[in-house]
Design a protein around this nucleic acid. Structure first.
Lengths: 340, 340
DNA sequence: ATAGTCCTTTGCAGCGCTGCAATGTAACCT
DNA sequence: AGGTTACATTGCAGCGCTGCAAAGGACTAT
């Protein structure tokens, strides 16, 4: 009573193994009589196709891998929550990998190692990869990149319009009367493009409003987490001339920043307004709730998966494309005292 | 310039394919001379072993799957963060699946479907599975179960001592002078064992302190999320005789509960103390910070992976075992006004 | 010198499936 | 009736690797 094979089913049904394969794969041109004979045999034997054998024969694994820097970052967890069912619906299993933002790890994953055979395509949110690193990749790997890493034309890129979104966030702070606005999260080095786009939006909003930018209010951080936000906020508040508002490059940063402000008995938003980015669930439940830029995460996840699967299915090279999902500003208590 | 195979390497190195295989797999009895010839050929051809072919030949996939109800629940995300690298170190890739707590989905995963071939073992945190469902599973599937689902002897179970932990949490509330203590998160139905253990601890602490249990203060919820916590807290506060403390069955529930309390201008912990469960990162940054039961998540993850891999490697059936990780009480601001 | 021992290397067969192209058969046309 | 078309079904070969057991070669002991 071991596992039965295609051949066993064929024998019992009195057809060739190839016909069984046709039935199993839903090949259209099988007569109903044959089909039901085969299906009956399948049921009797409890047959299930051996995916491993199919993989070898077809050269495909039916798996895609999603690579994120940190799994415990709610933003990525929320993305995965849509990516996985979307991929499943299309018949793909999802492998998950975590790089800790480590460049070498990321390079290894996109390179031509043996693991390449395990997935038909990859969705990656790179942190440590430089633009050149990306072109070092296995050229046969269908790739969709999340976050900010302009495409070199051989892969797709899905994200929101970061400059516009950042501009809106800062414009919102200006609109509620703030004039000394800080930014937490800049990353002024080659792999920090995503952060730099937000900084660009930060400047653009100032320019549009005719306000000067105080460069010393732009604080760099290595990551986008709570601890970074808490530390940066402490530095800002230690100044003789602290800001009256802060634009944080993620909701986690905002959460850490607010934590520090409240610890110092400051009122948010009265003494200092804070806006974040990502719209993670925590931000809706904290005290105060966190105003934020809400990217359409479902759209991002679905676009990424669909596009990747299209790439996998295509025989000729597909031109790399920039896909923009929508975003919107959601004001909450951290910038407006009373929100519905 | 396609992919080269074991055979190509063998030809170039002037040895048999089997020898190349031996080198690639680190088989000990290969002379240094042969080994270096082969390694050179591998380098020249840029050969990488085809994992798909290896999988078919060995009948193993080298993958394990981790099945959780919700990926965006920080507790699971934090677990995965340890599970993945631990498995990777042992040479396994990790597939992730999400069930939304849906029983049918869970049953399908542990059953004998074709996907079975894709993983050598499974770590599952079931929500909808009843005890009988668990025995319906594919008996050849090495299985480790997280959360509370006593083993039937054919799989392992990793968790903390929930009754003891819950007892400690409630004892802590009693120790700070609270007498009307509510519980949010009971699940008084067959699949709610995990919750019921906490309820048992809740009662035990009362008994030990010689306090009566007000049954009407035990609130059931279907999930353990923020929304549930917020709703349940609202119901408690609407009572004529609201509680002075609440034991929440997860930190998310606590977060939602605190949110509701603060909205109603109550002070936490002065007016109502709250303690959670899980020790997720949010709880350390909210306002107030959330007192909690902190399970040793790293230990849970590592135990689960190690045990699973042991099971996979073993030829004879392994007796199911209950593995207990440590936990500890962490008092924070939601129960003590001033914490270091 | 011959037999025995040990260790490296090899050949064979097959894991279970699918791609391809061909076979056989039934239905159609003139 | 003969020839053609259409389509269900099949056979072959092979995806690239490993398990097994045996072959071959070097070396030791007598």
């Amino acid at each position: 009573m071991g596992e039965s094979t295609l051949r066993d089913v064929a024998e019992l049904a009195g057809v060739s193994p190839r016909t069984v394969s046709n039935v199993v794969n839903g090949y259209a041109r099988v007569t109903d009589a044959t089909r039901s004979k085969v299906e009956h045999a399948i049921a009797v034997l409890g047959y299930r196709p051996n995916v491993l054998a199919r993989n070898l024969a077809t050269g495909r694994s039916g798996q895609i891998v999603v690579v994120v820097p940190y799994l415990d970052t709610p933003y990525f967890a929320e993305l995965l929550q849509t990516i996985i069912p979307t991929a499943r619906k299309a018949g793909y299993n999802v492998l998950v990998d975590q790089t800790d933002g480590d460049r070498d790890h990321e390079v290894e994953l996109i390179g031509r190692g043996p693991r390449r055979f395990l997935f038909d395509g990859m969705i990656i949110s790179p942190l440590g990869l430089s633009q050149e690193d990306l072109s070092l990749r296995d050229p046969t790997l269908p790739l969709v990149v999340l976050g900010e890493r302009p495409s070199d034309g051989t892969f797709d890129h899905v994200g929101i319009d970061d400059v516009a979104a950042a501009t809106e966030a800062v414009r919102h702070l200006i609109s509620i009367g703030r004039r000394r606005i800080a930014a937490i999260g800049d990353q002024p080095y080659p792999t920090g493009e995503a952060a730099q786009l937000r900084t660009r939006g930060f400047r653009a909003a100032h320019t549009a409003a005719g306000l000067p930018v105080d460069e010393s209010l732009i604080i760099s951080t290595t990551r986008f987490n709570r601890a970074d936000g808490a530390t940066a906020m402490a530095a800002l508040l230690d100044r003789a001339d602290p800001p009256d508002a802060v634009f944080c490059y993620s909701d986690l940063v905002a959460s850490g920043a607010i934590h520090t402000a409240l610890q110092r008995r400051l009122r948010v938003p009265e003494d200092i307004a804070v806006i974040g980015y990502d719209d993670i669930e925590d931000g809706r439940y904290g005290r105060p709730t966190i105003s934020t830029i809400s990217p359409d995460k479902k759209a991002i996840a679905q676009l990424a998966v669909e596009r990747l699967i299209m790439r996998i299915g295509s025989t000729e090279p597909v031109l790399g494309v920039e896909l923009r999902a929508a975003h919107r500003l959601i004001p909450r208590e951290s910038t407006l005292r009373d929100v519905p």
